[in-house]
Design a binder for these strands. Structure first.
Lengths: 239, 239
DNA sequence: CGTCGGGTTGAGTCCATTCAACTTCGGTGG
DNA sequence: CCACCGAAGTTGAATGGACTCAACCCGACG
């Protein structure tokens, strides 16, 4: 069940068998969440971190006027709230966008890892750093890209991240988001989100129906997005 | 010269004398940068990380059409590229927005810390996690706040972060940004940026002249921004 | 005294929003 | 069986926010 996590970690560096065993011993208790449920709620102080192993989840904040903004999308193999291990208090919620299965890693055990397994510690740290790199890319997209380019970039990113954990088939992947939720990713109104999607469809670079998104023209999509996957650190080297 | 770093770390947890000494031994070689110079350039693979001890710097990315977006502002005590320790390749540049003084921490020595000083390692990790938390807040601001609220939020954030490192006097602080640079923070045109600033001035919540920004009505500014400093983790507790 | 960088202001255009209507489709109950 | 309903998506029209282009101000500096 830890496979997606290992697939992700091994993109960055070699993970020894001892380290894999240590992770396996740290993580326990599978749990399932239904669509719309909070995996972790804002303001809470969890004593464990949550590893997503199946489904799609998102971090979000809600403003006083009711507006919601997603700050990240989480795919299988992502530690959705590893940062809570040190930040202690959740400053945002995490919601299931599809049925989700998660595993639990107790903070005491994570602390043990930091005390006994420096290399594995660095890999977990790196996990949160990639998270930050994705955030930066989103900021750039929100600030300076056209909406069409922003959406294209998101599709590229999701495709690459899902491919790493073998959740793609060919140039397609399941995307269980509603358009209203996508709008909360890009910071748009639902109506306009719909038109932007129509834009990419009309350009013939994607199709999206029945929760299945297919990239029809990967080259063109990358161009529109100015997508450069460097920020995902998908290079296996000593860390 | 390490004072601002210690001031920041001690906001989060107790830093022992041994840890302070270890940091002091890790960090060396002060260096100065002029306005507009890159502290770190995009695409590079630095073998050390850079601690800002004086001045204002920013992370940025540039798009093909020449558009620039800042993804963070860095104040004294910030490790501007601590993430490069594990990410290895810089996916963005870091530029000096005022004359900057920095110190250098070699990656080999940082690695030593991860192998011998788990608590200090966690504090450094935490440093990058707060970074991520700030990124998330920026994403929310860009996506769902009004531009006025976004600017107000930025002012609140800067004030609090600068206060931690004693770079405020009363309700004022030096802000060496040009309006064009602020525009690259919020993702706006210069002209519109100017009008938004005028907005906050007209509301009587800030003044800003001669590179000195003063918060005239802190309560009101916080309201406009819906500012809640939780995300900065300014609570001293065991981590 | 002229020039230049940064800031400010006005006018017109374009993009994104809101409000609203309408479609499609799957589920549910008469 | 089909009529109805609600959720999600799509489309049109009008409003308002953000953009560009342009002019102008002003203080620093040569």
């Amino acid at each position: 069940m830890l496979e997606p996590l290992f697939l992700q970690l091994e993109q960055h560096d070699v993970v020894s068998e001892a380290e894999q065993a240590l992770l396996a011993a740290t993580i326990s208790a599978p749990r399932d969440f239904a669509v719309g449920q909070d995996l972790v709620s804002a303001g809470s102080r969890p004593t464990y971190s949550t590893l997503l192993v199946d489904g799609l989840a998102a971090r979000y904040k809600v403003l006083e006027d009711g507006g919601r903004q997603f700050t990240s999308l989480q795919v299988p193999g992502d530690f959705v709230d590893l940062h809570a291990f040190l930040l202690k208090t959740m400053d945002h919620g995490i919601v299931a966008l599809s049925p989700c299965r998660v595993l639990i890693a107790d903070h005491n055990r994570l602390r043990k890892i930091t005390e006994t397994a420096p290399h594995l510690t660095r890999l977990l740290w790196l996990d949160t750093l990639v998270d930050g790199a994705i955030h930066r890319e989103w900021i750039v997209a929100m600030g300076r890209r056209s909406k069409t380019s922003h959406l294209a970039h998101l599709v590229c990113e999701l495709y690459v991240r899902l491919k790493v954990v073998k959740r793609t088939s060919g140039m397609s992947f399941r995307l269980t988001l509603k358009q209203a939720e996508l709008a909360d990713v890009l910071g748009l109104s639902v109506v306009h989100m719909n038109r932007i999607i129509g834009e990419l469809r009309k350009l013939g670079v994607i199709t999206w129906a029945d929760q299945s998104l297919t990239i029809v023209d990967w080259e063109r999509l990358q161009e529109i997005a100015e997508f450069d996957p460097t920020y995902l650190s998908l290079v296996r080297e000593s860390r």
